[in-house]
Design a protein around this nucleic acid. Structure first.
Lengths: 217, 217, 217, 217
DNA sequence: TATGAATGAGGTTTCATTCAT
DNA sequence: AATGAATGAAACCTCATTCAT
């Protein structure tokens, strides 16, 4: 008796996440408009009507998918900067690798594609996402950049101006992964991509001074 | 009487492009599925039925939009490499600036967003686009990189591995422009963005000349 | 323990009536089709599933609502005629006032509107209602009319032909009360309405002869 | 060429009325909620989608049905009072007979039942109907009553108080016709009904003065 | 007895596509 | 060549009904 009730209750609590998980997959796969709620329900193993016990409409489901997807992103990483002591370049490298592991490889990696694709149809959600995710991520990286500049490890530059540029190759890669990659348009393996990306970027950021000082000598 | 007829004929020949232009705008704005053919027709100033005189279906219209959008891209730039003599870094800079002018600023700049958003719904088109546009662009940049490496201007690296990484900030910017930008989520002004991008990237690519100069000495 | 059990039992026996009462309210308010069983359950303070312990289907609930509503109507009034001795006009007046008190003012006053609205969707129920309520009411009034005619108080007329006509203003009033009245479309206050109605009707029914006989005298 | 175009245009102009006519029938027959748009379309001989070329939604169709139904009512009768010269009782009789002919016998006779049934679900429409139809009809009858009172033909009474009462038997009859009548619950034939109604009502309204004066004497 | 999560048939509504004009 | 009225398949959503608990 307690077991079944628990099973039910657990079910009821687990449902929304099962549903948003199925929806995320399909929204990323086919886009919001093209995804039929039947499919979402089928993939989650429930009937169409069940969706409406948990979400008022397709649009609300969409919002929930995005909101749900944020949480892992927000929880992750913010303290990474504070904890990590070493040089900024190593910290940056650590963040990049971790981001790919946690976001790039996981289903929530589909969200960026989804956001860019649907932003103009759901401006409030786009703004919400920008505020909650992009802005926070930006602050994180800017802090790293500042530390590097202060320590002389990075050349002096305006972190705000560079942050989008620096992050672009990661965003593009995760977007690519969920669009062209799935059509058989492949590119360099991810490990090489990340290695080359880090090298290019760190070379682009670092201070030349030591080298030049050497040459001055 | 002859004048109107000429105007008509001209009209008739111009029609398909007027239609694809209207369709491109709307597809970029709202996505393929969400765009109604009524709207496309209305924006092009014709009736819904007229669309079917020129395109067999909504999907064919979509393909035509992409195909049409390619031509300017293909025509442009390929000879730029051959013609431009100077150092690779200057050539790269010229390509970047020109690309932004010709693509980033024009309506066809919406195509990348469209492709990434719809790739999985239209894999053949995605492959077609990858083949015809991305691949060619890649070859163009690879050639520039090669020239720079050969001349010692760039450090030795595998051009194939870096080309996507290097181009990402431009892609992201043009995607951003047609999605989040339209929701009021803005970022650094484009001139600063491009300047910082070029500096970061060229620093990341170039040879550490001073050191090498010493060794040359 | 016995106390609660008793309360439970009382509850259990009272349930069907609580449910039909809630249903009547809502059916009158919104119509049969538009009323959701959730609402009925909610208004009765039970869960949706509980309804099905007492009624096989929404339609059965509807039937029960009507059947339930009949009982007070049937119990009331039939003996009123037999008991009341005085002149027919006073008896008629008494019936009218009592009917308005017992039916017009009570929730079951909504039933006529409901019946007229849903008759064609539930013909058997309509016939059942006609048989059990309208027919009986008619017989009641016809008896009164007969008595009045026989006593010379009313002019000679065919009671069967007049009964619907005479009763119409009361029916209309109670229907109005549950439809237009609720939309803010009001009319004469009920006391004036009834007074004027009685005057008009009794003038319409009464015999002029006595007066003339008097004058003859 | 002109013929076909005319046919099309004529069709396009006739359509809304064909559709509202079909809808009126069905709404009266089954109620608003229970009527399926498929049926309306089928009865009008068009496809479901066609409805949406002319009406934005089921609710708008409903409103149009009511609005459409008003016009004949409004056009009719208002001048009847002005034109008719004779005694008020004859005018009243004429109005009653004409109303039954024009409204009672025609499909728009279903509207009252519809209004009373759906008033609480569509309060604005109910108010609109009350304002445009009931109120005007009331004014019409009140004018007739006034004329009769002024001429001494009718006893002195407050016309406003009596108008609903007097009209009730006609309303009830037309409502009955579209509900219980269709379930086989019949009543007195209409000609007898109207005759008895007129007699009862005119007796109820007329002045007894001469007789009473005699008795007073 | 009572609950309320789950179902799925059925309704309204949309829109790509057709075709008579 | 151009129109736009008409279609009907397919989507979203509702809600009466069921049933495990």
């Amino acid at each position: 008796m307690p077991a079944p009730k628990t099973r039910w209750k657990r079910r009821k609590e687990a449902r929304p996440q099962e549903l948003t998980a199925a929806a995320l997959e399909l929204f990323v796969e086919k886009g919001f408009a093209t995804t039929r709620l039947d499919e979402v329900a089928a993939r989650a193993g429930v009937s169409k009507g069940t969706l409406y016990l948990y979400f008022e409409s397709k649009e609300e489901l969409f919002k929930a998918v995005i909101r749900e997807g944020l949480l892992p992103l927000l929880a992750e990483g913010e303290d990474l900067v504070a904890r990590m002591p070493g040089p900024a370049s190593e910290l940056f490298q650590a963040i990049v690798m971790r981001w790919w592991e946690m976001v790039g490889e996981s289903p929530i990696g589909g969200i960026p594609k989804l956001i860019f694709a649907e932003a103009r149809n759901f401006p409030e959600i786009a703004r919400f996402y920008a505020e909650e995710v992009i802005e926070r991520g930006k602050r994180l990286l800017v802090a790293v950049f500042r530390r590097g500049i202060d320590s002389g490890e990075f050349r002096p530059f305006d972190p705000e101006s560079l942050v989008h540029i620096v992050f672009s190759p990661l965003m593009m890669r995760v977007i690519w992964k969920h669009s062209l990659d799935c059509c058989g348009v492949t590119t360099v393996p991810i490990d090489i991509y990340l290695r080359e990306y880090l090298e290019l970027t760190l070379r682009g950021l670092r201070n030349d001074v030591p080298v030049q000082q050497e040459s001055v000598k």
